[in-house]
Design a binder for these strands. Sequence first.
DNA 1: CACTTTTGTCCGGTATTTCAGACATCATGT
DNA 2: ACATGATGTCTGAAATACCGGACAAAAGTG
Lengths: 266, 266
Amino acid sequence: MMSDGVTELIEASGIAPQNGERRRGIDRVIMLLEALLRHRAPMRVGDIARMIGAPRSTTYEIVNSLLEAEMLENVGTEGYVYFGRAMHLFGWAYSHHNAHYRRILETLDRMAAETGETVQLCGLRGNKYVVLDCRDSPGPFRISSDVGVEVSIPWTASGRLLVGHMSEEEIKNFIPAGDYKLPDGRVIAPEEFFADVALARRQGFSETAALADRFTWCMAAPIHDGHGAINKTLCFVLPVDTPEVRRGELLSLLRERARGLSLVGG
Amino acid sequence: MMSDGVTELIEASGIAPQNGERRRGIDRVIMLLEALLRHRAPMRVGDIARMIGAPRSTTYEIVNSLLEAEMLENVGTEGYVYFGRAMHLFGWAYSHHNAHYRRILETLDRMAAETGETVQLCGLRGNKYVVLDCRDSPGPFRISSDVGVEVSIPWTASGRLLVGHMSEEEIKNFIPAGDYKLPDGRVIAPEEFFADVALARRQGFSETAALADRFTWCMAAPIHDGHGAINKTLCFVLPVDTPEVRRGELLSLLRERARGLSLVGG
DNA sequence: CACTTTTGTCCGGTATTTCAGACATCATGT
DNA sequence: ACATGATGTCTGAAATACCGGACAAAAGTG
């Protein structure tokens, strides 16, 4: 028996498990790490092999190399591996190397402390939306999405800002057609989405209520990079029944802080 | 001229730049990332090549692959590269991965796959409740609590089961007085909580509606260890508006699976 | 301006690495 | 007990990824 519900993911991943194809170790490594990220839990070598469409023997070899480098580590009694300490160091180095990003993270901390709400930093990864970092509200149960998980752009408030620089035509080519379908089955008409994008661009912020799920009110404000483009967004994830007055206050704060983080063009 | 004071580091690194040796791409990648980490600043491809003792052509190839995977990214006007966003995501995954995976994983996976709901494995850690593991329902935003975060026992359904073996007196000594106060300010009367505990023990399960927050219906069933004690629970976290019929089905499934995982006496 | 160093890209050959398959051991389930 | 499937390790062989080297263009130096 396969130890997991992994088979669906193999097919979903779209990686053609073409037979007889030989691939480079580097590419295997990249595929492996991304598979691990999507799965979000330790995996066994056999399952990894299936997931990335690599021979078992090759996968063992690669995993052992990465284990030795501490990019992966064993977890649990046997067989399971997950990201290792080295990854943490690399990631930490990434997020602290540039002053702008550090400033953003500090703002994130401050906003979370001041408001007690869930705050996120969002961006694009390919043609998907991802949460780059977040500070969750202190309650025991929270409404949030995991850092690094790819989500369809039309499901999010931030997504409406992040494609703001594109024409309708460009957006149409950029976002996969299936991404307009919400998790609950509803479908967003592309025209409606384009209108949202235009509105977000005019307003300088974007809000969605009970869109990707029934419980959240999301508001996002753009962080402009040096060239005036929108690279990242700052975002509150609120309970949908948050009073309007408070929403207004939070929106003001959000826009102010996002403006403060934007770089004015060279 | 070498663009940096890198030469010293090459020697300091201890990597023998043996000539004529051929190395695998994977090993090059590992050396490259570690070199970047040691250097703690963006580097140019030429310097990287010298630093890891690799041919320039090879280094370009590798760097380009890693750039495409966003494990590296270009920084500055030209030529410099440093860790990329993917590294941040991998590192985040590492540091948010708390120990206790592994044991009841399969059941957790299967239940999540079968029902599409959020399933958790819960236990005690000192006099607090913790989520030991969870499988979240699909969908981008979810209602959940972080694995490993300590929560007051009276706020949870599982908590009512986990203290089931104690007398009222023991419970009173065990749970800090402040823990009866909910996040929204309401206070649970200790007597009411004791009654809940007794009910949970008689029923063999426990449910709470909109307790720790306004959006969740929690149901928990006990996993008995070899001595008949309850030290873990299986738990569904549902939207509070889940229809009663479905709740009934899920509760049955939950109790059945929890019973299946319980160990019958030594 | 002449001179040197570096950058980024391309190419063909071969030393290597990936791959397929086999095998002994464990687990799991019937 | 038997059948099935997964794990971890090896091996030989062939496809190819890496290497060395060459080149034009750019950038620094005197």
